[in-house]
Computed example of a mutant assay.
Amino acid sequence: MAATTALDTLIDLTKEALDQAARLLAGERRTQQQVLQQLQTLNQYRLEYGQRLQEALQQGIDPASLLNYRAFLGSLDNAIERASQTLRQQQQKVDNSQRLWQEQHRKLNSYDTLVERRQQTVMLHASRAEQRASDELSARMSRNGAALLPPSDQSA
């Protein structure tokens, strides 16, 4: 029974690790979505300000305003690059978290398989023991039944 207890402990620990890995993965995915939304917002701002600059250029713009537009667009481009880098890093974190979750899931499945095999082995041994007991009982009854029968009349 000590092996079963140890296996049960391993299963419990693996379930906890799997739950932690799942929470970590969910958190990393939420963060990834937030970073993606920030990047999309920055790209949208970039597009809008680029369009405003084009409109201003068509209508005529003073040099100071042009410099301000370009400086702001440059800062947006830098922010977009940083957000893109953050998104790539976050994707790595998601990938790592997913691998960890998969590893814990495989481990738990392996332990479940061991439990199933152990149960099948116990059932097989019980079935064989029951069959032996049944065979022994049948053999005893057969011997006892033959001893109780009257001798057959062979002189007929």
Rank of each mutant, 00 (worst) to 15 (best):
M1R: 12
A3T: 06
A3M: 08
L7P: 02
L7C: 05
D8P: 04
T9C: 07
D12E: 15
L13A: 14
K15G: 02
K15A: 07
A17V: 06
L18G: 03
L18R: 08
A21Y: 00
A21N: 06
A22M: 05
G27W: 00
E28Y: 07
E28P: 01
R30C: 09
Q33F: 04
Q33E: 13
Q33K: 14
Q34C: 08
Q34G: 08
V35K: 03
V35H: 04
Q37L: 09
Q38F: 05
Q38C: 10
L39H: 07
L39N: 01
T41N: 13
L42D: 12
Y45I: 11
R46V: 01
E48R: 06
G50E: 12
G50W: 08
Q51T: 09
R52G: 04
R52Q: 15
L53C: 06
E55P: 03
A56M: 05
L57N: 07
Q59K: 08
I61D: 01
D62Y: 00
D62M: 07
A64N: 03
L66A: 06
L67H: 09
R70P: 01
F72P: 02
L73D: 01
G74W: 07
S75G: 05
S75K: 12
S75E: 13
N78L: 13
A79Q: 12
I80F: 05
S84C: 05
T86Y: 04
Q89Y: 03
Q89I: 13
D95F: 09
D95E: 13
W101T: 08
Q102S: 10
Q104R: 14
Q104M: 09
R106L: 15
N109I: 02
N109C: 11
D112E: 15
D112A: 14
L114C: 05
V115I: 11
R117E: 14
R118M: 01
Q119A: 14
Q119P: 00
M123G: 00
L124A: 15
H125Y: 13
H125N: 14
A129C: 03
E130F: 10
Q131S: 15
R132S: 12
A133C: 02
D135E: 15
E136W: 14
S138E: 06
S138N: 10
R140I: 05
S142Q: 10
S142W: 12
R143C: 04
R143G: 00
N144H: 06
N144D: 13
G145P: 00
L148V: 05
L149A: 09
S155P: 03
